[in-house]
Design a protein around this nucleic acid. Structure first.
Lengths: 190, 190
DNA sequence: ACCGAATGAGACATCTTTGTCTCACCAGAA
DNA sequence: TTCTGGTGAGACAAAGATGTCTCATTCGGT
């Protein structure tokens, strides 16, 4: 029997397809199934065999993105140690899934489904809680709401991912740029 | 003759259409011409009379967005006074066109045209120059590149516009949130 | 070498969107 | 009132995307 082998190979393929699809759809959200297939290096037929249709593809994209984001939050151990360190770990862990995050943030058409809104809210809450913890511990300023800081983090990560993908900044600077700007801002510390 | 009257009314209508189109397409970039028309409160026929087709609509959207952004940069007088103050003025002036900016940033499909890339580069350069000026004057830290700061500003403005439009934060806080986070970061100044 | 599963290429009908057109209607100016 | 330019509603063909199917080919395991 080779079930496990095939299963693993297919899983890898699916994830690879979803990654390239996320990258493409982030740049051109009107991309055709044919374009998605070509971007993944497969035929449209195979794409359709893996994902029943466009809706299924989008749903899978959303599901995998949310799953990976949750995993990143877990790995970052947001409630351990100082909030500052947790933010650094968060950005570091989020980096590999930044493409997915950018896609999920911009693709609000999905949110009409109400269903996965829940998964998104869970992530929002966890990140908000981190910022709130930092405020209560005195590390973070209190005149910026956790909700806004969460949104801002999404925006910065998205900008960072796009800038890297577009070659405007080096990938190795991703984490540093985002963390430093988010934590310290652009003004020179006196 | 009523040329001027009709001309003015049509101009107002066109801009109103473009504004609602930008708002809609930012959320759902696959929106139909029919949906765009409904969102603008007009019929699809009238929409087609104003804009020859979808491409023309997108181009007009891009043209107006860039024009308004340039106007905002002019009004902000980026090269006057301290860089910090210029950043504050910039965010304040950009606020009314934040919806357009969010649309332009996410809609990279246009950038295949190479043509208006020039207009976008001009804006990039002006904002980058502001950050560089702040670094040279000693106001801003020098370990974050002007290119990244420019991208980050786009991301923050986009996030802010989306958060306001979505009711997650109050519109009156828009400017404060963005400027404060961009300038000072989340860490409490010691 | 053989076999089976998966793939790529392409044909095909169907559905959606687009772009154009016509016609009835309404509001403002003469 | 009468005329006129703009609009909304709807019909229509054309173009594009989608989803399904078939068949030849290729790749991996036996």
């Amino acid at each position: 029997m080779s079930h496990s082998v095939y299963g693993r190979l297919m899983a890898v393929d699916r994830e690879q397809i979803l990654r390239s699809a996320a990258a493409l759809l982030t740049r051109k959200s009107t991309a055709t199934m044919d374009e998605v297939a070509k971007a993944a290096g497969i035929s449209r037929a195979t794409l359709h065999r893996q994902f029943a249709g466009r809706d299924a593809l989008i749903k899978a994209l959303e599901a995998l993105g949310l799953t990976q984001l949750e995993a990143a939050l877990d790995a970052a151990r947001l409630d351990e140690g100082e909030a500052t360190g947790a933010v650094r770990r968060l950005v570091a862990e989020v980096e590999p899934v930044a493409g997915f995050l950018a896609f999920l943030v911009t693709e609000n058409q999905l949110f009409e489904a109400e269903a996965m809104n829940e998964g998104w809210n869970r992530i929002d809450d966890r990140i908000s809680a981190l910022f709130r913890r930092g405020q209560e511990s005195g590390e973070f300023r209190i005149d910026l709401s956790p909700a806004w800081l969460t949104e801002a983090l999404y925006g910065l990560v998205g900008s960072g991912a796009w800038a890297v993908q577009d070659g405007r900044v080096a990938a190795k600077d991703f984490q540093f740029m985002i963390v430093e700007l988010l934590l310290g801002g652009v003004r020179r510390s006196a």
